[in-house]
């Protein structure tokens, strides 16, 4: 049986220390501030990042350099036969596109998964890949499986402000139009390509109940219902405000009793576009 390595990037929310535990290799995402480049979770912590964001520093995201990607692959291929590479959503970054191009020189040994996941659902994909290896699939089969499964997840994010999203241009015009006159808390949905407007709320509580209802709706209508087997993973994510996130987690747990709910801070390349104070909930169908 071929030995397969799993690679993802730091958007998955898998930290460097967690990566050792899980046996999943994590490429740190680079950030540029001024003329200096930082790497997520290497020399840029969440705290430092939000400090800079609040100071109004111009932060731009970038994709991992081809060199860093190939160095990691080359290193891994000395030990493994194949690589499953799961980059952040191709709708939000060029990382996937670049990785696919680079993979062409690896004779099929590197399979780049274009399943348009991000953050907690991207993390779930990496964990799913691990499970698929145990089930005896090869890298190409895993890629096909994960890509076929790409729409079996959704993320809802409530933002505190549209400011960062508008600034970064990572939003469809429909989403940008909401909240034009009133101060609204937009609820966005990530599914496939881009962040899109899902709903809007006047207060945090309204936004939270919209998200919980949306997840319930997805589970019932798309992911096989709220069964005893708990056929979905539920995860929550947030930017910056840990205290609000803990409260949010409690509410989600209450709405979905019996589900084991994972919580991560949102990865910085997402946070960079949506700003602090966002709360998110996601579900992915168990494979």
């Amino acid at each position: 049986m071929a030995k397969i390595a799993i690679v993802t990037d730091s958007n998955s929310g898998i930290t460097q220390s967690e990566s050792l535990e899980l046996g999943i290799h994590v490429l740190p995402m680079p950030f540029m501030m001024g003329d200096k480049t930082y790497f997520e979770d290497i020399d840029l912590s969440q705290e430092q990042f939000y400090e800079m964001l609040k100071n109004g520093d111009e932060i731009s995201t970038s994709q991992p350099s081809p060199e860093s990607v190939m160095n990691l692959w080359d290193k891994l291929l000395k030990e493994y036969d194949e690589i499953v590479h799961i980059p952040m959503s191709s709708g939000l970054s060029g990382s996937c596109q670049s990785a696919m191009m680079l993979a062409q020189d690896y004779d099929g040994k590197v399979q780049v998964v274009n399943n348009q996941r991000i953050s907690i659902t991207q993390r779930q994909s990496a964990l799913d890949a691990k499970l698929l290896i145990e089930r005896g699939m090869n890298a190409a089969e895993i890629k096909d499986f994960l890509e076929a499964d790409k729409f079996n997840s959704s993320i809802y994010i409530m933002l505190d402000t549209l400011y960062y999203l508008k600034k970064g241009g990572r939003i469809t015009p429909a989403a940008a139009a909401i909240g034009s006159l009133l101060r609204l808390k937009p609820v966005l949905q990530i599914q496939g390509e881009k962040l899109d407007a899902f709903a809007k709320a006047r207060t945090t509580n309204q936004g939270k109940s919209i998200m919980i209802n949306a997840i319930q709706n997805d589970i019932i209508n798309r992911f096989g219902g709220m069964t005893e087997e708990k056929g979905v993973w539920i995860a929550i994510a947030y930017t910056y405000d840990t205290e609000a996130a803990m409260a949010w987690k409690e509410e989600v747990e209450k709405a979905f009793p019996g589900y084991d709910i994972h919580m991560d801070p949102l990865s910085l390349s997402v946070a960079c576009h949506i700003g602090p104070g966002a709360l998110a909930v996601a579900c992915s169908k168990k494979i």
Binding site: Q189, Q206, I210, A214
Partner: peptide, 26 residues
Amino acid sequence: ITAVVNYVPELSVDENEQTMLAEINH
């Protein structure tokens, strides 16, 4: 204003009606 803010185009008319009816009481 609250009713129309809470309208979600992706959901069915019935679901939206229920949400709006509930939200206006708040």
